[in-house]
Amino acid sequence: MAPKPTKLPSGSWNTKVRLPDGSRRSITDPLKRVVEQKARDLEATFARGSSVVVDGKLTVGDWAAKWFAARRVAPNTAAKNDSHWRIHIKPRWASWPLAQIDRLDVQAWVNDMADAGLGAPTISAAYNLLSKMLADAVLSNKLHASPCVEVTLPRIVKPAERWLTRHEYDRIQLALANRTLQVPRTDRTEPDPLAPMWQAFVGLGCFSGLRPGELAGLDVEHIDFDRGLVRVEQVNTRYGMRDGGKTESASRLVPFPPEVGDLLWRWAGDRATGPLFTAPEGGRVEDRNFARRVWDPALREAGVAPGKPYLMRHTCASWLVQAGVPDREIQKILGHSSARLISVYAHLSPDAHESVRAAWASDPGAATHALHTPGKQESPSPGGLGL
């Protein structure tokens, strides 16, 4: 039964009805009785659907085979899903009849994965895949309701976001410029002939915010040297080239400064076509190989703390925020459908906390004076406001 409607700040009434697949549907209306009636009608619809007779012998494995065959997802997503199915879901659930799984069974599975030492992101990914699979079984009348409801997952603790300072960036560029390679079957080293390319790759990454796969997907003709623009149209993945980006906003024009233009011209100014960045063995740069062979050694040589190549993208975001570029413009440059990444660096904005500082400037002692005036409540902290 839906919970009783609650009044919103807007004056309307709201309640939420749990759907058979475990999700909730929100119902809002200015009239309380309308909300109650809509909730009753919706629950009655689900109650009538519960008369559907499901196949008690249909196993999770049987349903998964049909479900995976009908899905249309990107190759990298399909590969991740296949891995989670084979390693984490199939061994536990393949032989279980769909109709015999309840919420506590799912919770026990999640707990067992945590006890086995699996990381929170892996557990969440496996659980979410099973949840989607069973939710679709409900929609296909193979299951009355999904057992993936109110299951407690381990909390994912994300590391603090970081970025490169300008000094760190310069040291990395110096390390790349002086990059050497071991001569086979000798103890000698020689300058890396691709050093200018790696400098251009990192420079464009840090100043444009392109994802590593977007950098690797660039062709020479995507660079407009006259206007200082790069056109993002394709992404190189471990499963091959993919047109466009992760979202509609990912295909875009992105500016780069003259110093990056100089790096790009040194590397590709004499070419008109072909991949902009190429791997030593031929073909395009591959993210994992770049990280292992080039990026990680450059950070060590530069004395910079380890970090994934995505650090270049976060560096671009932080630099633009610090320069006072509007959030909307940064969002367009990064190709984001939301301002989530930008919000991480909001505290770096030149006008961050401006209202607080203005309040201090208007009467810097007013707050502390009020706290220590006789008859006023003292601050529980030893240092007043701690300012």
Rank of each mutant, 00 (worst) to 15 (best):
A195K: 07
V202Y: 02
G117F: 14
G324S: 11
R162G: 11
L181Y: 01
V54N: 05
W267H: 15
I333L: 14
T6S: 14
S349F: 10
P97Q: 01
I342S: 04
A70T: 09
T315V: 07
A361F: 08
K132N: 12
E286I: 10
D270R: 14
G217S: 04
Q199F: 00
D296K: 14
N236T: 06
R284L: 13
M133K: 04
Q182F: 00
R211K: 11
A200F: 00
E233M: 13
P306N: 07
G205L: 02
D112M: 06
Q199V: 03
D102F: 10
R328K: 14
L371G: 01
A366Q: 12
V285M: 13
S140Y: 00
S362E: 10
N14C: 13
L210T: 03
M1F: 06
E301G: 10
S338M: 00
P3A: 08
T368N: 12
L139N: 11
V60A: 08
D29V: 00
W360F: 15
K7A: 10
E329L: 10
A291M: 06
S83P: 02
S379Q: 07
P20E: 03
P255I: 05
F46D: 07
H84Y: 15
I123Q: 08
P297R: 03
V151A: 01
C316W: 06
L118Y: 15
P382I: 01
G205E: 01
Q100K: 14
D327I: 06
N178V: 00
W93A: 02
N111C: 03
S318L: 08
R86N: 14
T278M: 12
G303N: 10
V53L: 12
A302R: 08
Q100H: 13
G365H: 13
T315Y: 05
V304N: 04
A137I: 08
R40S: 11
R266A: 13
P374H: 05
